[in-house]
Simulated assay, not measured.
Amino acid sequence: MPSALSSAKTRSALRTSARISLQMLLVLLMTAVTLWLLGRMWSVLWPLVVALLLTTLTWPPARFLRRHGWPPALAASLITVLFLLIGAGIVVLIAVPVASQSGELAEGVVDGIQQLREWAAGPPLRIGEDQVTSALDAAVARIQGSVGSIVSATVTGVGTIVNGLVTTVLALFLMFFFLKDGPRFLPWLTRQLPGRLSTDVPTVASRGWDTLGAFVRSQAFVGLLDAVFIGLGLWIVGVPLVLPLAVLTFVSAFVPIVGALFAGFVAVLIALVSNGWTDALIVLAIIIVVQQLEGNVFQPIVQSRGLGLHAAVVLLAVTLGGSLAGIVGSLLAVPVAALIAVLWNYLREQLSDPAAPEAPDPAEPGPAPDAA
């Protein structure tokens, strides 16, 4: 016969389950409150996050100058100016060749549209001129009926651009101060915090800084791989503006998913208007292959090694971040996951029991007694 349930053990199990459930609810509540507060402070936090990421990229040369006797303010000023010059140079490197060939590209766009219309007019679609004209008239009528939405979208876009400029300026100023006074932050933080926090918080902050540096370096390496392979493919196919497209690919790699799609779309469009459909399809195939290798091989391997995360965790983090917060979520998903891993590993270290000394094996002979 099966044994009867013990009422005492059942009540104990229910009490334990209720206590654990209450604790989990409190943790989830505190997490929700924290996320709400971060959302309210996002206008300040976003420039801070951008500045930290830029500082991890510019700190190695600033540290080199400081170790060779440069004053902190002078080293930070020089690195900030050089960073601005490099950013402006990248913009010029992309814009000048495009502007010099804008006439040819415009003619190519017109020819491409005409080729598309001729192709649509033939089999199997057989779309006639009257259908195209009616579709254009319908599109114009719809645009005219949506003037208010277009104006509001334009105003929203202008506001977004202004916010982006403000964020960029604040991030550059914060980057300068981080380069100048960054090494004094942890000692200052140690003096401000009481008790054990004066040790725990600076330790976690130091490990988190190393993790952010590893993320930026790995992202730059992956972007360099994309730029080299895609640029080489464009050069072999004979697409114009290879260097600007390669630079655009490298820069866009710092914005996961959307950046790669944008750079690939530009490359395919230029191949279409300059070389025709065949080369455009070849370029599209090259970009798809490189992006698949980057997203499924290069990026997870490099970031998992640099950040101490498994490749599957990296992929899941990018997917979750993109679904929760769009482009910004995709950009910050991997470093946030790495920082959570840093905090979790430190908590495990502090909460783990010290390893017990191994008992001697009785089968092994002990040390020989000292001679009398």
Rank of each mutant, 00 (worst) to 15 (best):
His310Cys: 05
Gly276Ala: 14
Arg11Ile: 07
Leu174Ala: 12
Lys180Pro: 00
Asp226Phe: 11
Leu85Ile: 11
Trp188Ile: 01
Val266Asn: 04
Gln299Phe: 06
Ser330Cys: 05
Val81Ser: 08
Pro256Ile: 08
Ser352Cys: 12
Val132Lys: 00
Ala356Pro: 10
Trp277Ile: 14
Ala260Gln: 00
Trp59Pro: 00
Leu315Trp: 00
Leu243Trp: 04
Pro183Val: 01
Ala106Phe: 14
Gly322Cys: 04
Pro354Thr: 01
Arg15Ala: 12
Ile236Asp: 04
Arg191Glu: 11
Ala359Ser: 15
Val96Pro: 01
Pro244Lys: 01
Phe64Glu: 12
Val44Tyr: 08
Thr10Gly: 08
Ser252Asp: 04
Leu48Pro: 11
Thr168Tyr: 05
Ala214Glu: 12
Asp279Cys: 10
Val140Asn: 11
Ile90Cys: 10
Val328Phe: 09
Gln291Ala: 06
Thr31Ser: 15
Arg66Cys: 05
Thr211Asn: 04
Ile282Arg: 13
Ala99Thr: 08
Ile257Pro: 04
Ser274Leu: 02
Ser7Met: 03
Gly39His: 03
Glu104Val: 14
Pro354Leu: 03
Gly195Met: 09
Thr16Ile: 13
Ile270Lys: 05
Glu358Pro: 02
Ala18Asp: 10
Val162Arg: 02
Ala153Phe: 00
Leu37Trp: 13
Ala121Leu: 06
Val27Lys: 15
Thr278Gly: 15
Leu48Thr: 14
Leu14Ser: 13
Ser206Gln: 12
Ala368Thr: 14
Thr56Lys: 12
Ala371Cys: 06
Asp111Pro: 05
Ser323Gln: 12
Leu93Ser: 01
Pro183Met: 06
Val268Pro: 09
Glu129Gln: 15
Phe262Ile: 07
Gly326Cys: 06
Ser6Asn: 11
Val81Lys: 04
Gln303Leu: 08
Leu53Ser: 00
Gln292Val: 10
Phe221Ala: 07
Pro300Ser: 04
Leu22Cys: 00
Gly39Cys: 05
Arg67Met: 14
Gly259Thr: 10
Ser152Phe: 06
Gln23Thr: 12
Leu26Trp: 15
Gly112Val: 03
Glu104Ile: 11
Leu351Tyr: 14
Ala214Lys: 13
Gln115Thr: 00
Met41Pro: 00
Gly128His: 09
Ile127Gln: 15
Leu82Ala: 10
Lys9Tyr: 13
Val255Glu: 06
Ala13Trp: 14
Ala214Met: 14
Ala356Ile: 09
Asp226Lys: 12
Leu189Gln: 03
Val258Gly: 01
Asp181Thr: 05
Leu26Gln: 13
Ser252Trp: 03
Leu234Asn: 10
Pro2Val: 05
Ala312Glu: 05
Ser274Cys: 03
Ala139Glu: 14
Ser100Ile: 07
